[in-house]
Design a protein around this nucleic acid. Structure first.
Lengths: 334, 334
DNA sequence: CTGAAAGCGCTTACAG
DNA sequence: CTGAAAGCGCTTACAG
């Protein structure tokens, strides 16, 4: 019960060599093997409930059929949704997924990365934190195929990256605001050097300037940790002092801090303020007022990452692949 | 860059045996080794950026430092939250987590299980689906330490399980309804033989009978797939024909189908109906009316599972450990 | 048609 | 103080 059966056990039982058992069970050199011997071996393997030891296989083949996935936080729906689709697609290729959350901490990220490389993962899908550019060297030096997801680092050349076209997404957010009659909008973002967030800001400000006029699209950045404390004064400031009539939340975390606040402050949505958020969460279904959100094609993006890594093309350079967002309108129930 | 450095490389470079390098790098037999040789070896290891191959280590040691986690659906917050805490705690023990979603499908579950066992995971944390009792034999025969999470199978003896005290949780739900003045309540559950769901039903019906009177606590079960279609007629029936004044949703999925419906039907909460849901989700923060929910101590439960498996006690039988729920009141913003 | 042998990268009891 | 050797469970070129 504790001892697992190995090729040796089967070989012993069948009175043949280990090599032969290996050939039979793997269906190799199959034509030159005595049919009866083969049958007998298979019988015994089944009877002993043989399960090949993947560790031993991996040592020989240098393939672990394991995909390493490092996200910011698996308990954030954005990443768990991605993780689910990555797993599904990986399974299709006979792969399993080893995951880790780096919580946007470069040290934790590097540690997870080291562990995954030591475990000889065949490929990596990574949401690299801000400030972990050093880890890029580890990754490149390892020679393990990788794709960055939801992150890009243009200053490091054309790294394989699967990202939203964030500039464009923000542009369509601003256009949506304009079409809903907004005159002056604001966005709440995160204090971060991450390029994809910068792009959100840049698109927001530039397009606001372009279609609503100068200084109509300010972006206010908070640190993730200070959200609970600082979001309320910020919202008040934006609404009262800045006379803004449209707010865009740049992440679902920010949205989940902002929306309850609007409810408790009894701000009239969308009469006083129009709301557009990045990233779909189920929670929006409970928000009683009309709002819109930016949907990333996450399923497609996840699967694309896996297909690239496990398909034919892993040794070609993919470079940066941008996906277009879809803006979704929600009516609310008020 | 592609070729990883091995003990052999270091040994060659240092002009010593592989064994010696292994001893030095693992700090074994350390006192009987020439200090200078040791230093030299360490230098070279560092210079060549040596990372031990875990696969080879595992083959020898029969330890993979991998924890297998099979949940119903990683993209459901309930499980991704658990997964996050399991990972954190596992990391603390030097372990990594291989995960899979079985989507409540016994075949998928068995397949994931087989793969994880073939990969020689050191321990398993499992949310076994309804109808996958056969897999229990695979698990037991493997001899791999395991804990069921959020599931229990009393008909199979005292399997290690970490669960909510679901009977008690439902009891406190009913008491809460009563204290809020409800006279006749109903619950919406899932068509399933899973014991923990049965217990929720049993506690609900029995305690309702006890404190509100006969036939005051019916449970309506829907299949997960039919939720989108059948929830609306069911809610209408419950409200209009059955004259119920309190509804309990037995899972967060059911809650996320029911609550938006109440909004769109403009049902007055809590005037017409009082709502209590199982399992916390962030979304409740956006629900504009007062409601209550059953909070499972998931962090503690997750960590307990890991500690049992990776700590001292893994070869003792843990049996069923029940955790008590906490009922949380939410004011809403209406 | 089948087997002995080498080897994947490590560890460790044993011998010197 | 150090090394040769066996072995973890597999695969596979080679020999017969």
């Amino acid at each position: 019960m504790i001892k697992k059966t190995s090729l040796k056990d089967i070989a012993h039982e069948a009175g043949v060599s280990i090599a032969l058992v290996s050939y039979v069970l793997n269906g190799k050199n199959t034509k030159r093997i005595n049919v009866e011997t083969a049958e007998k071996i298979k019988q015994i393997a089944k009877a002993l409930n043989y399960q090949p030891n993947q560790i031993a296989k991996s040592l020989k083949s240098n393939k672990t059929y394991t995909l390493g996935l490092i996200v910011a936080d698996i308990s954030n729906f954005f990443y768990s949704y991605i993780a689910g689709h990555i797993e599904d697609e990986a399974n299709r290729f006979g792969y399993n997924v080893l995951f880790g959350s780096a919580y946007e901490d470069p040290k934790r990220f590097q540690k997870l990365l080291d562990v995954m490389l030591a475990r000889q993962v065949d490929a990596l899908i990574l949401a690299i934190p801000d400030g972990a550019e050093d880890s890029l060297n580890t990754i490149k030096d390892s020679g393990v195929p990788f794709v960055l997801i939801d992150r890009e680092f243009p200053e490091f050349g054309e790294l394989n990256s699967i990202v939203l076209d964030n500039y464009n997404a923000s542009a369509s957010v601003v256009r949506k605001f304009a079409s809903l009659g907004c005159r002056k909008v604001a966005a709440i973002g995160l204090e971060s050097n991450l390029f994809h967030l910068q792009e959100r800001s840049r698109g927001f400000t530039e397009i606001a300037e372009q279609i609503l006029g100068p200084s109509t699209g300010k972006v206010y950045n908070l640190s993730e940790g200070s959200l609970p404390d600082k979001i309320q004064p910020l919202i008040k400031q934006i609404l009262e002092e800045e006379q803004v009539d449209g707010i865009c939340c740049f992440t679902n975390k920010i949205a989940m801090a902002t929306l309850p606040l609007l409810l408790s402050l009894k701000v009239q949505v969308p009469k006083e303020i129009t709301i557009i958020c990045y990233d779909e969460v189920e929670a929006y279904k409970l928000f009683p007022y009309p709002m819109s959100f930016v949907r990333q094609p996450l399923e497609e993006m996840s699967k694309e990452a896996v297909r690239y890594l496990l398909g034919q093309d892993k040794h070609k350079v993919m470079g940066v692949r941008k996906f277009e967002a879809v803006l979704i309108d929600m009516q609310g129930y008020s």
